[in-house]
Design a protein around this nucleic acid. Structure first.
Lengths: 189, 189
DNA sequence: GGGTCAATGGGACAAATGTCCTTTTAAGTG
DNA sequence: CACTTAAAAGGACATTTGTCCCATTGACCC
């Protein structure tokens, strides 16, 4: 549910300590918009600490959350490979600490540091692997099952993440989410 | 809708002509299952010609199509990076011609051929970019809009791909798809 | 041609989800 | 503390989509 990538965190720590390239630490407060959909940026971020959400806003203003990003998750990297606008917005949920580096440095690292190259390749592959079954599941099962599944994956769910965000993650309205939660309570109670 | 990657096709042609590594041509007949979900394989495929579907089957036996793969699309590559079972099945729709290579050769190429490395990295990034707005759109709009959108992207839609597959791609039942198609006809007629 | 099977199309009803709106609760903020 | 605002909860009804079934069509095979 909240994705992470310890391997990449560890490697970024090492790179940063060595002082290679222009990797720098950056901090953001809660609810801050770091990347906005359909814009152009020149940085790649790797989360050191905190939680952010990555979401798409459609023409009707509805948000659809792609992923909750935790430590070791990167964002802004897709735009390095094809020089297009961002498809997602990224906004912090908790205060966030990141390593930030320019597209240029990112590219140099990819070329010259094959360990880094491999970690990024794996991270991309994982993002694909993770999304496929999730959307499949959400389509195939009623909301209740989706909630139960999330709570199992991540019990502190409702403590950290707002109802609205959970609903936007599952892809339903807040109303429907509430209805499902109520029915779950009645069943278990 | 049916995705392709001309750049990768061209590059694979070149590699094949040069006779590097164990890249070989392979052919499959229509409706053939090449990769089955939850299994382990040791090959990566790049489509030269034809169309295949990549889909997940859930516990209830419902299929959910992730992508229709055309020329230049690769599959079986995700399992190179993390040594897990396949998450999707891949089945041909039309007869299919591929370049096939072992995980081992794929890895060697990634390390030694930075042009190849970059193409694969970009292909992975594109898969992510492509999926995000698609699922967002499907959630947010009624079936009719989804059909219209697909027909716009790919007018020959219903000629090449069965109703069942289209439905499984949009994530609805065949019944619902038919209903929507009928209503579209009535509106336009 | 007759037989079989898969794909397509659709009727009738049930279930799930969305829309709209109101109320309650909680959380800041001056 | 009073005031304002955002988050959460839910009632009532409309709409969408699914389920279950059956009829039709078309392809293929003996």
């Amino acid at each position: 549910m909240i994705r992470s990538n310890p391997e990449l965190t560890a490697y970024m720590d090492k790179l940063f300590e060595r002082g290679v390239h222009d990797i720098r630490e950056e901090e953001f407060r809660a609810k801050q918009l770091i990347i906005e959909q359909d814009h152009r940026y020149h940085n790649v971020y790797v989360i050191r600490e905190g939680i952010a959400k990555c979401y798409i806003t459609d023409e009707n203003g509805k948000d659809f959350i792609q992923e909750f990003l935790g430590a070791g998750m990167e964002f802004g990297e897709l735009e390095v490979f094809n020089n297009k606008l961002t498809i997602c917005s990224v906004e912090t949920i908790t205060p966030l600490k990141t390593y930030s580096l320019s597209h240029k440095s990112f590219n140099v690292l990819l070329k010259e540091d094959m360990e880094f190259n491999r970690l990024i390749m794996k991270a991309l592959a994982d993002k694909i692997r993770y999304k496929a079954p999730r959307h499949s599941y959400q389509h195939s099962y009623p909301i209740e099952n989706n909630i139960l599944r999330l709570k199992q994956l991540f019990p502190e769910l409702t403590d950290v993440i707002s109802k609205k965000d959970i609903a936007n993650y599952i892809g339903v309205t807040t109303r429907s989410l509430n209805r499902a939660l109520k029915e779950l309570n009645e069943k278990s109670g």
